[in-house]
């Protein structure tokens, strides 16, 4: 039986990877990345190896998979589209999730949405037979109720507007995830302006920015609902992931 997977995405630069690592730590899940390398302790799904593994499962033979993927025209075709990449990543993720719950650190907004949108198109293209059945089973797995999508954002206005679009787009995906959580990262602690604001204009301005960000984060939580979590900014913290995980677990 497959365990739940938390798929983490958001606009570039909001701290997806750090939040994903913290989420994994807080929930006792394993962090998974689809890349050549990853943080220590993470499950690193290497694209080339995953491709081999998926082909071997599909063809029922490792040797056949190697020969097939060794062909240059085949590689030229497969390298072009994120659609095959998405299928391979999701299929291997499903297998890895049989052992333990996972937190999957995904690419940023545009690419992540396109990963989810690829599967129905691939299924349509596959026509019938074994490939179609394979894509369909991966899609069924994604729609299972134990998974959720975690969208990471910061409270800056321009980031929030992209996040709102992402929330809507994610809800209307053909393979929408059962559950959606929102995490506002780098929320400054509430602070009042210093007494001697006139002698320290920069400190005063920074504190004002912080107060405004805090207000925007809270307003966003009110608008977006109970599944919104605010994470305090820990400037210069030594072990950011551990500190964040503690906050998420609370």
């Amino acid at each position: 039986m497959s365990q739940g997977v938390t798929f983490v995405t958001g606009k570039g630069g909001v701290g997806k990877s750090t939040v994903a690592a913290a989420l994994a730590r807080a929930s006792g899940a394993r962090l998974a990345v689809f890349a050549h390398t990853g943080p220590s302790g993470a499950l690193v799904l290497r694209p080339a190896e995953c491709r081999q593994a998926v082909a071997a499962r599909l063809f029922g033979s490792r040797r056949l998979a190697r020969a097939f993927l060794g062909s240059e025209p085949v590689r030229a075709l497969l390298d072009v589209s994120d659609a095959v990449t998405a299928l391979v990543a999701f299929a291997e993720l499903e297998r890895a999730a049989e052992g333990a719950p996972l937190v999957f650190d995904m690419p940023a907004t545009g690419h992540a949405l396109s990963w989810f949108r690829s599967l129905p198109v691939l299924e349509g293209l596959a026509g019938g037979g074994r490939l179609k059945a394979f894509v369909a089973s991966v899609r069924r797995w994604i729609r299972a109720p134990q998974h959720r999508l975690a969208i990471v954002t910061t409270a800056e206005s321009f980031v929030l507007s992209e996040t709102r679009e992402l929330i809507e787009a994610a809800r209307s995906l053909p393979d929408a995830l059962a559950d959606q959580a929102l995490i506002v990262n780098r929320v400054p602690p509430a602070r009042s302006a210093p007494a001697s604001a006139s002698s320290f204009p920069e400190a005063h301005a920074r504190l004002n920015d912080w107060n405004m960000l805090r207000t925007q984060a809270e307003a966003f939580r009110d608008e977006a609902g109970a599944s919104t979590h605010l994470l305090v900014d820990r400037i210069g913290a030594r072990n950011l992931v551990a500190a964040m995980a503690e906050e998420l677990a609370a």
Binding site: R191, P194, S196, S199, E202, A203, R206, I235
Partner: peptide
């Protein structure tokens, strides 16, 4: 870049900035 922050930081004192001192100093140092 906050050039003014880097310049101003030298004159900050904990008393003048209350509880914000530690956070602001960490921010400017970073």
């Amino acid at each position: 870049v906050r050039e003014g922050l880097l310049e101003e930081q030298r004159h900050w004192t904990p008393e003048a900035l209350d509880d914000a001192y530690a956070a602001l100093t960490a921010y400017a140092t970073q």
